[in-house]
Amino acid sequence: MTAIAMNFASPRLLLVQAGAVRQIAEVLAKFGLSRPLVVTDPFMVGSGHLRHCLDPLAAAGLAVSVFSDTVADPTDTVIEAGVMELKRGAFDCLIGFGGGSPIDTAKAMAILAAGGGKMRDYKAPFAADRGALPVIAVPTTAGTGSECTRFTVITDTERDEKMLITGLGALPLAALVDYELTYSVPPRTTADTGVDSLTHALEAYVSKRANPVSDALALSAMGLIGANIRVAYGEPRNALAREAMMLGASEAGLAFSNSSVALVHGMSRPIGAHFHVPHGLSNAMLLPAVTSFSVGGAEARYGEAARRIGFAAAQDGDGAAAAKLITGLERLNRDLAVPTPADWGIDEAAWSGKLALMAEQALASGSPANNPTVPTAEQIVGLYREVWRGAAANR
């Protein structure tokens, strides 16, 4: 048996249950907190969804301020504006309420407020271990897992680059995971965030930095997501499917936060930065082709993943199961109507013109180094070309 070296980090409190958001005031009280700045987005405010968070706080007699200028792909300029808002009040915590973007924004605000400077100063491999205030995360999608991770992804607007920022400063103090908040999520978002969660779990499991605890969480997440993603997509009010997807997303978040993601995420971030494709959707576009490229580096692990997701039978050998994983991911993309970059409306000349830069940025993120098969820049360019053609998805 080889020696195990493991460093595992997680929120101090993870509350997973229907109606968890109604306990937000009690959770703050557990940690002696009473002056929150809620970080959310305009949709949560305009749709009234934010009341799920604000009403329990008001009922407890807490004065609450709201910063709602977050954007779909958080930018350094938004973070700077958020820090200015933070400095205007005597806040003692941040509540990130919404999808991954508001939660990532709250995390980055805490880090930038603690150290000052520019957001790019904290880009990996810098260890962003200090946060000015604790973050309480309340996700409203079953996807990013940001409520459980020590990562945040912020776009550098001057350099057109999605920056991975990692450290204990980005780790929420507590997370309230309430699947009832996902009932109103549209099918496209359900699909994209669901595949995002599946990618987190799969990459955590095959990562060169995997460990026994991340393995257990990743395998459990793959089982939950594989069995329920199509149901949640087709039946938005199915409580059992929504609950399973929410738990799977959090398990996958804990898994990849402690073993890291790999090539899919490394290639996905530049697509988001240059073409503003939502993160989960760009992962979905890439997943079949990147898995096909990578499978030879960890056939046994990919085979076990296929069995857990439900693409392969228990009696299938690793090689056969790994092959079924690729075809299963292709079929899942078709069932969830995942578009190719061309179908999504990206201009081919613009895509081709960014390939070398995107490959360079993917490698610079460090994530591809965790992949079972570590690619060259030329191989990444080739994968981007394959994904553009939709070769893997249309076999």
Rank of each mutant, 00 (worst) to 15 (best):
M1E: 14
A3C: 08
A5T: 15
M6Q: 10
P11M: 02
L14I: 14
Q17M: 06
A18V: 11
V21G: 00
I24T: 14
K30G: 07
G32W: 03
L33C: 07
L33G: 05
R35Y: 14
V38S: 03
T40K: 02
G46D: 12
S47N: 12
G48Q: 14
H49T: 00
H49V: 01
L50D: 13
R51V: 15
R51S: 13
V66F: 05
P74Y: 13
T75F: 04
D76R: 06
T77N: 14
V78Q: 01
I79P: 02
D92W: 00
C93T: 04
I95E: 12
G98C: 10
G100N: 01
I103Y: 07
T105L: 07
T105P: 05
T105Q: 02
A106E: 09
L112E: 10
A114K: 08
A114Q: 11
K123D: 01
K123I: 00
G131H: 09
G131D: 04
A132C: 07
I136Q: 10
A137R: 03
V138R: 10
G143N: 00
T144Y: 03
E147R: 13
R150W: 09
T157D: 15
M163E: 12
L171W: 03
A175K: 04
A175D: 05
V177Y: 11
Y183K: 09
Y183W: 09
V185Q: 09
A191I: 04
T193S: 15
S197T: 10
L198Y: 11
H200W: 01
E203Y: 05
E203F: 06
A204Y: 06
Y205M: 05
Y205D: 07
V206G: 03
K208N: 06
R209Y: 06
R209A: 14
A210T: 08
N211D: 13
V213D: 09
L219G: 11
A221Q: 04
E235P: 01
R237Y: 14
L240T: 14
R242S: 03
M246I: 14
M246E: 07
L247R: 03
G248N: 00
E251P: 12
G253P: 06
S257V: 06
L263Y: 00
M267L: 14
V277Y: 01
H279F: 11
G280P: 12
S282L: 13
N283F: 04
N283V: 04
A284T: 08
L286D: 01
G297C: 13
A298N: 08
Y302D: 13
A305W: 09
R307S: 10
R307H: 08
R308Y: 01
A313W: 12
D316T: 02
G317L: 15
A320I: 06
A322F: 00
I326N: 07
T327G: 11
E330D: 10
L332A: 03
N333M: 11
N333H: 06
A337N: 02
V338W: 00
P339I: 01
W344S: 02
E348K: 07
A349Q: 15
A362L: 08
S365T: 13
S365D: 12
G366F: 05
N370Y: 00
P372S: 06
T376F: 00
A377L: 05
A377E: 08
E378C: 09
G382C: 14
V387Q: 06
V387K: 05
W388A: 15
A391V: 09
A391L: 04
N394S: 14
